[in-house]
Every structure is written in structure tokens, then in C-alpha cells.
């Protein structure tokens, strides 16, 4: 069965292009441009893995992940962060929010696929 990936990012172009990468990689993709809408979409689409941009204007990746894991009970969905501002000391915060991995921008698309497979075991 095809795996379903949700991408949450405020950059529309990035969203579309990453969508294309993942579709070509054999995934079903749900894109979310506004993180506020993500929770509803998770309920509706039940993704197997979530990719989330860490820095968005309305909500940070931390907040999105924290809400999903600690308030909505989606602690079984692995989350991968994407950040241009990755700092070592965020690791514990990432763990607390259930973010399993953070990809440093600019990453190679193949790294995304590699890490999706890895977090899903």
C-alpha cells in the first residue's frame, strides 16, 4: 500500500515542488499551506508521516508537532522537521514535541525520501 505523506509549509512553491518529488517517489501526498488547517487535515486524511517547516509565520513547527502529539493524541505519526535554523540545543525540544528528525535546508530531495523511510521503520 502506498504511504501517505503530509507536507506543512507556508512556502507554496516549495510545497508544490516537494509534492512533485514525493509523488515521483511513489507516495501519496497531502499538502497544507497554512499550519492552522493542519489538524483538521490530519483528522481527515490520516497521514503515515508528516513533514513540517519549523519556521512559519502563523505557527512554528514545534507548536504544530506539540499540538498533534500532546493534545490531539497523534503520537503514533512520525514527524520530520525542515529548518534553515537548526541548532543542537533544540534537540530536546524536538523530542518533547515528537519531532524525530530535523532536515537542514537546503537538503537534497533524496534525503527527504531516505528519512521518510527511516522514521517509518
Amino acid at each position: 500500500m502506498r504511504k501517505k505523506v503530509m507536507i506543512i509549509d507556508d512556502d507554496k512553491v516549495f510545497l508544490e515542488e516537494l509534492n512533485e518529488v514525493l509523488i515521483s517517489g511513489g507516495y501519496d501526498v497531502v499538502t497544507v499551506n497554512d499550519p492552522v488547517l493542519a489538524f483538521n487535515m490530519v483528522d481527515k486524511t490520516k497521514p503515515d508521516v508528516i513533514l513540517v517547516d519549523m519556521k512559519m509565520p502563523s505557527m512554528s513547527g514545534f507548536e504544530v508537532a506539540n499540538e498533534l502529539k500532546n493534545f490531539l493524541g497523534y503520537d503514533f505519526i512520525p514527524i520530520i522537521g525542515m529548518s534553515g535554523f537548526y541548532r543542537d540545543n533544540d534537540i530536546s525540544l524536538m523530542n518533547m514535541c515528537g519531532i524525530q528528525k530535523c532536515l537542514n535546508k537546503p537538503f537534497r530531495p533524496l534525503d527527504v525520501i531516505y528519512n521518510i523511510e527511516k522514521v517509518m521503520g
Partner: peptide, 20 residues
């Protein structure tokens, strides 16, 4: 530096799609 990484990420992904 941090801000620049976002457009660079886009360029990378677009290049990948183009190449395919």
C-alpha cells in the same frame, strides 16, 4: 544566512524535479 537557506532549499528541489 538562515533566511537564505529557504530559497536555496527551493532551488534544490526544483532542480531535482527538472532533472527528472
Amino acid at each position: 544566512a538562515h533566511e537564505l537557506r529557504n530559497p536555496l532549499a527551493v532551488i534544490n528541489v526544483v532542480s531535482y524535479n527538472l532533472k527528472r
